[in-house]
Amino acid sequence: MSGNCPETGSAPGPAGRIASGLLIGIMHFWRIALSPMTGPNCRFHPTCSCYGIEAVSQHGSLRGGWLTMKRILRCNPWSAGGYDPVPPHAETGKSHVSDEGTAGNRA
């Protein structure tokens, strides 16, 4: 459950790197220190925090942060959950597995 979250790629520019580094740091802290106390909650694989770390390190703080926010909003009792990886660079936003994997499956 707690395996490593892949941190790949890097955001361009020093400001971007600081921002994404900060976000990733916060999410690491959440994952390692805080989240275990709340008990496991996430409906997805990888978990939201893992997803966030991966998304921000791959797509930078803006796009990655946006993806993470959408993912957290998706992670609610009325979505199906399941396997939902970070979309790779080329396909972001388009009809991707993540979209199919979550929307309206339970009906």
Binding site: C42, P77, G81, G82, R106
Partner: peptide, 17 residues
């Protein structure tokens, strides 16, 4: 993975939100 979820009957229920 989805097939596995189907077989095991797993659907996480509460979520991070």
């Amino acid at each position: 993975v989805m097939a596995l979820y189907r077989e095991e009957g797993v659907s996480p229920a509460s979520g991070c939100l």
